[in-house]
C-alpha cells in the first residue's frame, strides 16, 4: 500500500447512505372505517362510549378511558369550538402548507373531545380559546375517505364558549344549550 493509500485509510468514515424503503398496506380499523365512510358522504360522525356516554371523534376503536369499544354512531355539527391552538411558523419539509398557519384543537358540537385541524380565513392574532368556528368542505365531487374533505375551519359570528363548557355543547350548539 502506498503512503497515500495509508493516509486515506486513516480518514474516518463519518457516514454512509442506506435508504430504507418499506411498503405497507395500511388499514384504518373497523371503527375508523365507519367514520371514514360517513366522511365520504360529507358527514362528520362521532361514536359514543356505552360506558361513560362520551362521544369520540375521530373514533379509534375504543373509549380510551373505559377500554371498551365505541358503538353508537352520532352525527356531529359542522360548528366547533376552539379548545386551544398554535400558530406554526416553522417550515416542515414535505408539508405543502406555507407557514404561518394555525393548528387548532377543535371540539365539534355534539362531541366531547377535540381533534386537530387547520383554522384559516381569519386574522391569526385574533384567534382565541372559546372561539366559535365552522367547517369549510371541499366540493362534494372531491370527497374521499379523508379528513381533508374539510379544507379548514373558519371563524363564526357567535358568542364565545366559556372554558368550562368547551367539549360539552350538544349537537345543536348554543341553541341546544339550555
Amino acid at each position: 500500500m502506498s503512503e497515500d493509500n495509508n493516509a486515506q485509510a486513516r480518514e474516518p468514515v463519518t457516514g454512509m447512505d442506506a435508504p430504507i424503503y418499506l411498503q405497507y398496506q395500511f388499514t384504518a380499523g373497523r371503527a375508523p372505517s365507519r367514520f371514514l365512510h360517513a366522511l365520504k358522504q360529507g358527514r362528520l360522525t362521532g361514536q359514543r362510549c356505552p360506558g361513560c356516554s362520551q362521544v369520540y371523534i375521530p373514533p379509534r376503536g375504543s373509549c380510551p378511558a373505559c377500554g371498551i369499544a365505541t358503538d353508537e354512531e352520532v352525527t356531529l355539527s359542522n360548528k366547533a369550538t376552539v379548545q386551544s391552538f398554535t400558530i406554526v411558523y416553522i417550515p416542515i419539509p414535505g408539508n405543502p402548507i406555507k407557514p404561518p398557519y394555525i393548528v387548532a384543537n377543535l371540539v365539534p358540537d355534539g362531541a366531547n373531545i377535540s381533534f386537530i385541524h387547520l383554522l384559516s380565513d381569519c386574522v391569526n392574532e385574533e384567534v382565541h380559546i372559546g372561539q366559535r368556528v365552522e367547517a369549510v368542505w371541499k366540493p362534494a365531487q372531491e370527497w374521499d375517505y379523508k379528513m381533508d374533505n374539510i379544507l379548514y375551519y373558519r371563524p363564526l359570528e357567535e358568542p364565545d364558549v366559556p372554558v368550562e363548557l368547551i367539549g360539552r355543547l350538544p349537537v345543536e350548539g348554543w341553541e341546544g344549550q339550555a
Partner: peptide, 25 residues
Amino acid sequence: PQPFAVHLNAGAGGYFAPIIREYMR
C-alpha cells in the same frame, strides 16, 4: 403521514404548544 389523517405535520411542538397556551390562560 398516515393515510386518512390530516397532513398537518406540525411535529412535537405543534402538539404541545396549544397545551402551553392553555396553561398561560
